[in-house]
Amino acid sequence: MVTLAEVARQAGVSPSTVSYVLSGKRAISEPTRARVEQAISDLGYHPNAGARALAGKRSHIIALVVPLRTDVYVPIMMEIAIAVTMAARQYGYDVLLITNDEGPEGVRRVAASGLADGVVLMDVELEDERIPVLRELGSHAAMIGLPADAHGLACVDHDFTAAGALCADHLADLGHRDVAFVGYAPQVYRRHAGYAERTLTGFRERAAARGLRILHRPCEGTYESTAGTLARILEDRPATTGFVVQNEGALGPLLSLLRGSGRIVPEDASVVALCPEQLAEQNSPRLTAVTGPAQELGRQAVELVMSRIDGGAPPEITLLTPVLTVRESTGPGPFPVR
Rank of each mutant, 00 (worst) to 15 (best):
L254G: 04
T3F: 02
V74W: 07
H170P: 03
S14Q: 11
A81N: 03
D173P: 11
S14Y: 11
E303A: 07
C155R: 09
L171N: 04
F335A: 15
H216G: 00
L43C: 10
A196C: 08
M122G: 05
S261V: 10
V65Q: 06
R109M: 02
A294P: 07
A207I: 00
Y73G: 04
L254I: 05
A163E: 06
S307M: 15
G312F: 14
A34Q: 12
I61N: 06
A141V: 07
I317S: 11
R299A: 13
P67T: 08
I131N: 07
G202T: 09
S225R: 07
V290Q: 02
F243D: 01
D178Y: 10
L134P: 00
T199V: 10
H170K: 04
G260T: 05
I80S: 00
P67R: 08
A8S: 10
V120Y: 13
T318L: 12
I131R: 09
D42I: 13
R327N: 05
V124Y: 02
L115C: 08
L287D: 01
A196P: 05
S261A: 14
R33D: 09
R232H: 09
G175A: 03
E37M: 13
G103Y: 08
V119S: 07
A148S: 14
R69H: 09
G260H: 07
D101A: 14
V36T: 09
G56V: 12
I131H: 11
A185G: 01
M86W: 09
A250K: 01
V36C: 11
G298H: 09
G260I: 07
G44C: 05
L153E: 02
I317N: 12
A250H: 01
L297A: 04
E30G: 08
A87W: 03
Y223P: 07
I98F: 08
S23K: 09
E277K: 06
A193L: 13
T291R: 00
T199Q: 10
T241W: 01
A111W: 05
S16W: 15
L121P: 00
T226M: 11
V18Q: 03
D123L: 08
R33P: 03
R89K: 13
E129K: 13
T199R: 10
T325Y: 14
L254S: 06
R259N: 11
L279I: 05
P332V: 15
T291L: 00
V107S: 05
V95F: 11
Y91M: 08
V290L: 06
V72E: 06
L215S: 00
H192Q: 06
G164F: 03
L274W: 01
V84S: 10
S23W: 07
G145W: 10
I233S: 01
R259C: 07
P31I: 05
E37P: 09
A5Y: 12
F203G: 00
V74C: 07
E105N: 03
E136V: 04
P285C: 07
G194V: 06
E136M: 03
M78Y: 14
A148M: 12
E248V: 12
L134Y: 02
S14G: 11
S41L: 15
A112T: 13
Y20M: 15
G262F: 06
G194Q: 09
H216T: 01
L257H: 14
G56R: 12
D173E: 14
Q300K: 15
E30A: 12
L121K: 01
G262Y: 05
F181M: 03
S256A: 13
